[in-house]
Write a protein that binds this DNA or RNA. Structure first.
Lengths: 201, 201
DNA sequence: ACCTGAACACCGTTCAAGT
DNA sequence: ACCTGAACACCGTTCAAGT
């Protein structure tokens, strides 16, 4: 045994990430283990450590791909002629949909916790920043008179809020919300927020 | 051995919860294990299963106590003569402070995920609902003309948003927010939200 | 009735040893 | 250089057996 060379280092890397995503989709973080990933791709556990530093590293890379996917979904909802509450609600709807459709992978983005005061790696922070791009763009178009710094901050505040609603709803921490759907709650937020930002309409 | 009777069933229960909280405070969910809890209180692992259904049950009960503590902290910030943005910001500040001070236990409230479509037990949902009490009260006082149904919904939307900001900030998912503090972000939210709800001032 | 100790089926991670 | 298999130190959960 050893030296099979069935797959290149890079192929093993990709196979492992795909297998991990499948496991997560099937049963969440609980269902993920190094041993299971390895066996799904037909290798021994040890092999994984040729390609990943450890399981956290693997999870972080899966999360990176999830962020890319999320970014795509948001980008796809940007209209031709941009701006206005409708476009922001389109983006919000895309986020809600993503969270509801890909719940396990979406949830993993926040289950992975940075130990102590350790920072997330640079490439990951960049991907994170990209996700806010479409929101920032739509918000700037909605508030053309607003300074770009303020729009930047506002887009973070607004999106963190959308996320909070989504999260508590999906994780069933808001059962007593009086029968509102996630979408209705987010719409209430967006409406109020835009009025507060001085958006007429 | 066996039949030590050093502690009553209830004492073991309390000791275990306290030990679990200590472990969580020291190292988060990762540091928690049935075996560690047992050894901290001077019993064998098996003994824990006399008193808890399983580890998830133990975690849920720890979370219940965390919710009680959070409720206390919020309740303590309600003013005498209520209402207004200031009081809502007091509550928000209390929430932020709690999240920053008791990060591991606060985080555990959301790391525990309900499997499949299983619901959270009734006693837990009641505790959850109680947390929104102070917010609802302050918001109703701020918007006296607003129907109580709408206030109820608005308090959920607002607080889920505050939570989202807190969460993404503490978990370092908002590093590119342009140097705003959690408090500043929450203040932007509250300001806009209240204007949107038709609050003059 | 209470509690133990051992067992079972799992983990993540490392690394000598084989090709 | 690549990959294995075994080892180490852990898990959660169960349960016969002791007092």
């Amino acid at each position: 045994m050893a030296r099979r060379s069935d797959h290149s280092r890079d192929e093993i890397h990709q196979l492992a990430l795909a297998a991990a995503e499948a496991l997560i989709d099937e049963g969440g973080l609980q269902a993920l283990s190094a041993r299971k990933v390895a066996s799904r791709i037909g290798y021994t556990v040890g092999t994984l450590y040729m390609v990943f530093k450890n399981l956290d590293d693997l999870i972080l890379q899966v999360n990176g791909r999830t962020l890319d996917l999320l970014h795509q979904r948001l980008q796809g909802r940007l209209s031709e002629r941009i701006g206005g509450k409708d476009e922001l609600m389109q983006l919000a709807a895309a986020y809600i949909e993503f969270a509801q459709t890909e719940t396990p992978r979406w949830g993993m983005l926040f289950e992975y916790i940075v130990d102590d005061d350790g920072e997330l790696p640079g490439w990951y922070q960049e991907k994170l920043g990209r996700v806010f791009g479409p929101v920032e763009q739509a918000l700037q178009a909605t508030l053309p008179a607003c300074a770009s710094d303020k729009v930047r901050q506002a887009s973070r505040v607004l999106w963190a809020s959308v996320h909070g609603i989504c999260m508590l709803k999906i994780r069933q921490r808001l059962n007593l919300a009086g029968g509102q759907t996630t979408r209705q709650m987010v719409e209430m937020l967006v409406d109020n927020f835009l009025v507060g930002m001085g958006c007429k309409e």
